[in-house]
Amino acid sequence: MLQRLDELGAELSRRTDAIALIGLGSAGAEHDRLDEHSDLDFFVVVDDGAKARYLEAIDWLAAPCPVAYSFANDRNGRKALYADGIFIEYAIFTVDELARLPFTGGRLVWQRTDAPDGLVDCGPPPAGPPYDTVEFHLNEALTNLYVGLHRELRGERLTASRFIQSFAVDRVISLLNLTAEARHRRDPFEPSRRVEQAYPPEVLPLAEMVPGYEGNLAAARTTFEWLRHRFAVHPVIGDAIRDLLREADAAR
């Protein structure tokens, strides 16, 4: 997969309007994470006026290997599958656009001799949520459980599962990121990435928090008890969640 990036870099080097190729994610600075399940993420930096050509035509992309499938997934780029099974996601930017992008961990695969310095360092750090505090994430998790249980009682099980087993669990992960030491590198853009390597099951019991469509009540009870044993839950919202759990048990 890294060879494919090198091949793309070689193809771009033959084009006068390409400036740089930047590997991202497991193809970036942390390429030791690359394995058989990885995809290939990258940015192509081009001259002003060249972006539309690189977005509309994929001849440069197909130079190392035929492209079996592709589609525009963003106004800046595409997802594609090579005939040999390598899956890629890429975006095309000018230098000025790149400078305004939040990204980390980029690796310069190739650059033109006159490319500006600092291409992989120009992005600002990713912005956190509006209130990245224990109080915010705790109360968001509790109110996610509260809303989710009401929707479960109404019979809206799918949306209930999203509030209970997705939104609330996202806040649990944020709480751990603020209060616990991770044993693995975390993804600054997607907290659920590599969370199993960061926190063992005794710290983050995901199997019980995310049991599936039929398991909203059990999931809500697990997450609520997890929160209650680790943080000071306000008695009003705590009692309201207990009442909903009892009501749901009785309804069953």
Rank of each mutant, 00 (worst) to 15 (best):
L244E: 10
L119H: 03
D32I: 06
V210K: 14
D84G: 06
D59M: 06
L101W: 15
P130Q: 05
Y90S: 01
A57P: 02
G123Q: 11
Y69K: 09
D41A: 11
D121T: 09
R194L: 10
D35Y: 08
V95M: 01
D84Q: 10
T179M: 04
A248T: 05
L108K: 08
L55M: 10
A10Y: 05
T222F: 03
F224W: 05
R228P: 00
E196Q: 12
W226N: 05
S26D: 06
E156Y: 11
L142Q: 07
T159N: 02
R154V: 02
R230S: 08
R33Y: 05
P211Q: 10
E214H: 13
V169L: 13
L2P: 02
S192V: 12
D114N: 11
R33I: 01
A220W: 02
F167C: 04
G128F: 07
V147K: 02
F167N: 15
I164A: 05
L8K: 09
L101E: 15
A250F: 04
V172R: 08
A20F: 02
L5H: 06
P201N: 14
D121K: 10
R242I: 12
M1L: 06
P129L: 14
R33S: 00
T113D: 15
D132W: 13
E225N: 11
S38Q: 07
H31V: 03
P126C: 01
P201D: 15
Y54K: 04
R53M: 04
R171A: 11
E30V: 08
I86D: 13
R246C: 00
R194A: 13
L21C: 08
G77Q: 01
R14M: 06
W110I: 13
V236I: 10
L138H: 07
L34C: 12
T143K: 09
A218L: 07
I22Q: 12
I241H: 00
L176I: 08
Y146S: 11
L2Q: 14
M209R: 06
L204A: 03
D41G: 10
